[in-house]
Structures are given as C-alpha cells and as structure tokens.
C-alpha cells in the first residue's frame, strides 16, 4: 500500500492522500464531509451536481473529480460556497416534484438530508411542476421520475456493477429524463432485478423497492440516526432493513 506522505489542507485541516486520489475521496477517508449528491464512494466520479464545488487555491472545482495534490489549499465550508450549494439544491427541488411529506424516502433521502444540512428552509425559486411519468410496470421496482435528479448513479451502477445497462439519460436540457433500455420503454421489459445495485444506489425516491413503503418507523430512519455529514455511514441506506 502506498504510504500517505502527501497532504493538502481542507479548511485549514491537513488531509493525507494517496497519489491519484480525488479531494473528495481523501476528505471522506479523513472523515470530513463535503456536500454531494452525484458522488458515491466506489463509483467513477461524475462531477455533474456541482454540490461538492470547493475553492482550490482560490479557483472553484468539483472535489469529486479534482485530484488531490501536495500543498493544495482547499476551502469548502465557506459562507459563499454553502450559499451556492443551497441554491443548487433549491433548483433541484423546484425542477422536479419532490413532495417530502408523502414520500416514503423521507428520512432516508440524501437530497432531503443535504437540504437540511445546508439550512434550506424553502424552495425559494418558482416550482416548475413538470409532468413526469411514473413507471410501475416492474413487479418489484417503482420508477418515479418526479423524484429523479439525473445524478446517473443508477446508470453507472447498472453499467459498471450490475453489468446490465438498464438506465440511460435521454433528451436534452430541461427535457432530459431517465430512460430505460427496452423497446417498449417499460421498466418491466428490462433485465432489472430488485437486488441490483442500481436500485439501492438511488439517493432520492426515484427508484424504490415496491411495497417497502413506510416500513421503517420515524426515529429509526437513516437520517434520524445519523447526520449526513457522518461520512462513515455513506452507503448505509443501500442496505435493506426488512428482508
């Protein structure tokens, strides 16, 4: 194993890293949280949600894609960066239909937890209220595009972990949407299995195991027990609790 002799500073704290490691990976290994949505440990960086944008020696860049270098001075927890992150999160909320009060992912949802973490108390922007489809055709998985934030975690998981290529992003700009790899366009006609990583990896309630619903009581949900800034629990919500 490469010895970690190199360090950079993150908000003044010395963070050791290995050669080729991103700022995000090194920070996570050191137990430091940088807000993010499209990143997940173990997955190829995507750099699309921009929540993890940090200032590296004064220049903004995504922590999940930027490789750490010795002597870097990285700022993350600044008022200005958190204001930008909050605005980005608010835009995600108004761009889709995220109705937390009736969403079964509430309390286990990374988007909701990030919003709370960033102190988002209102959507601020005007809601788009887009008309988006729900695909309930699969016997064990529900695809609710209302809650999709186009992070492509399911696309990457299906392609790189499950080896199935079930998901992709179709359309352009505001019309971008999650599509499935079947001539019929129906989830039921893909090779998706409920046990696929692509289902568990969804940070919102866009992909759900059917009938799980509200089986976990309030008080025992992931973000009832841990704050999102506790990076050691990052992938915990992927573990089924009621099998």
């Amino acid at each position: 194993m490469t010895e970690m002799t190199n360090t950079f500073t993150l908000d003044g704290k010395e963070i050791p890293f290995r050669e080729g490691e991103t700022i995000m990976a090194a920070a996570t290994a050191a137990g430091v949280y940088i807000p993010h949505l499209c990143h997940r440990p173990g997955f190829k960086p995507h750099g699309s949600c921009k929540l993890c944008t940090v200032n590296i020696d004064g220049r903004p860049s995504a922590a999940c894609t930027h490789l750490a270098a010795a002597g870097m001075r990285v700022e993350s927890e600044t008022e200005a960066l958190n204001a930008d992150r909050r605005a980005l999160t608010q835009m995600l909320f108004v761009e889709g239909n995220h109705i937390c009060p009736s969403c079964e992912k509430s309390g286990n949802c990374q988007l909701q937890a990030v919003a709370y973490h960033l102190g988002m108390s209102t959507p601020h922007f005007t809601h788009f209220y887009p008309a988006r489809d729900v695909d309930a055709s699969h016997p064990d998985v529900l695809l609710d595009r209302n809650r999709c934030i186009l992070c492509e975690l399911c696309v990457r998981a299906s392609r790189d972990v499950d080896g199935k290529n079930v998901f992709g992003i179709g359309g352009r700009g505001i019309r971008s949407r999650l599509i499935v790899n079947a001539a019929s366009g129906r989830l039921a006609d893909t090779g998706l299995a409920v046990t696929d990583r692509a289902v568990a990896v969804c940070p919102t309630g866009a992909l759900l195991r059917k009938r799980d619903g509200f089986s976990v009581p309030i008080g025992e949900r992931r973000y009832d027990r841990h704050t999102i800034s506790d990076v050691t629990t990052e992938t915990e919500e992927e573990r089924p609790r009621h099998d």
Partner: peptide
Amino acid sequence: RPYWEVPVLVQR
C-alpha cells in the same frame, strides 16, 4: 401513486 404511499399521503 403506489398504494402503499396512500395512508401517509391522504392524511395531509
């Protein structure tokens, strides 16, 4: 909406 969501949704 999926049926299992309804008891929480309609109480609003």
